[in-house]
């Protein structure tokens, strides 16, 4: 009996250690692997390159962090990115290059998509996954409708591309925007009552409601913030590409969710933070970077990425299992 208790205790202490230092340990491991794999890896240029490449993913990830903290999910990021990004290019061209109004209107579209997502989840109690499919389909249709399936010319080499390609005192603009979003996310989750409410709703919704927290309102606001951040990411993304594309690709949402999960946010809610999400997404980005620097074929890149995701999720699940068992004993 006491042996069993000892095993549980050991498991719990590993789980506690992992929850505190696991993400940092993985980051350190990736940095060591990268340094061994390529002499170009651990240089300031390359590190800035990786953060810049992943800045829009990180902005999405901060929105994902909010959503995952309350125990929900958004699976419509790819299509939201396409719709808001293309809309921003069209608005920019239509307004004759007024960047400020373009950004404001685009953020508004992102926020409205967040309103729709949150409203459907909270008002009709629809599963977030199903709502994500519907929003995704809606965004895909709208993108095709407004673009006619064509790239949007007229933004290349204009002020629009400054957001994704410009520099401010030598620092890439998307990195500055990303860190600003990270700071806001950190402050909301760690220093504001709303953040504590969000964590409470994700940890135990019934208990949160019983203690007077308006859970539905919290979830709705979280989705609006998620939509806003996705809207901002879309502008950074299209500006980086330099041209509005109705089919910019898929997998961005998946990468963001994976990164946030590696960074310590649980899919069942109640945990997660800006710093963890930043490191989690960075780990995914660094792995991609190492594989490109090593010249690995796409086949091996897919295989390695798939294996790492499974390992990360298994560690996450086992850690939480051990924590729960430990607490129960």
């Amino acid at each position: 009996m006491s042996e069993k208790k000892e095993v549980v205790k050991q498991k719990k202490s590993f789980a506690e250690l992992y929850s505190k230092y696991g993400t940092f340990s993985i980051l350190a491991l990736v940095l060591i692997i990268g340094t061994i794999a390529s002499p170009q890896f651990l240089t300031l240029d390359n590190m800035l390159n990786v953060i810049r490449q992943n800045s829009y993913l990180l902005i999405i990830a901060f929105g994902t962090t909010f959503v995952m903290v309350v125990g929900c999910i958004n699976i419509a990021y790819d299509m939201m990115l396409a719709l808001v990004g293309c809309a921003s290019c069209l608005i920019y061209v239509a307004l004759g290059g007024n960047l400020l109004i373009t950004v404001l209107l685009s953020l508004m579209i992102g926020a409205l998509l967040g309103v729709a997502y949150g409203f459907l989840v909270t008002h009709f109690n629809l599963p977030p996954f199903i709502v994500g499919l519907a929003i995704s389909s809606f965004c895909q249709g709208m993108t095709l409708l407004i673009t006619g399936g064509r790239s949007i010319p007229g933004t290349m080499g204009t002020s629009y591309t400054l957001i994704g390609q410009g520099f401010f005192f030598g620092i890439p603009v998307p990195i500055i925007i990303m860190f600003a979003c990270m700071a806001v996310t950190w402050v909301i989750l760690r220093k504001m009552i709303f953040g504590r409410h969000a964590i409470a709703v994700g940890g135990n919704r019934q208990a949160a409601i019983a203690s007077g927290i308006r859970a539905k309102r919290v979830i709705l606001i979280v989705y609006i913030m998620d939509g806003l951040l996705c809207g901002l990411a879309a502008i950074v993304f299209m500006s980086r590409l330099g041209v509005g594309q109705p089919n910019p690709g898929t997998g961005y949402g998946f990468d963001a969710i994976t990164g946030v999960n590696i960074g310590g946010a649980s899919l069942s809610g109640g945990s997660g933070g800006a710093v963890g999400s930043f490191i989690g997404v960075l780990i995914v980005g660094l792995l991609n970077n190492i594989m490109n620097l090593r010249g690995l074929s796409s086949a091996w890149q897919f295989i390695i990425k798939g294996i790492l995701i499974v390992i990360a999720v298994i560690i996450d699940m086992k850690t939480k299992e051990a924590m729960v068992k430990g607490s129960a004993k």
């Binding site: 240029d45 390159n49 980086r240 590409l241 910019p248 690709g249």
Partner: peptide, 15 residues
């Protein structure tokens, strides 16, 4: 996709 090619080319320029 443009995004994938851009990421790849940025990494190749590092090398």
């Amino acid at each position: 996709t443009t995004a994938a090619a851009q990421k790849l080319m940025e990494d190749l320029i590092q090398v």
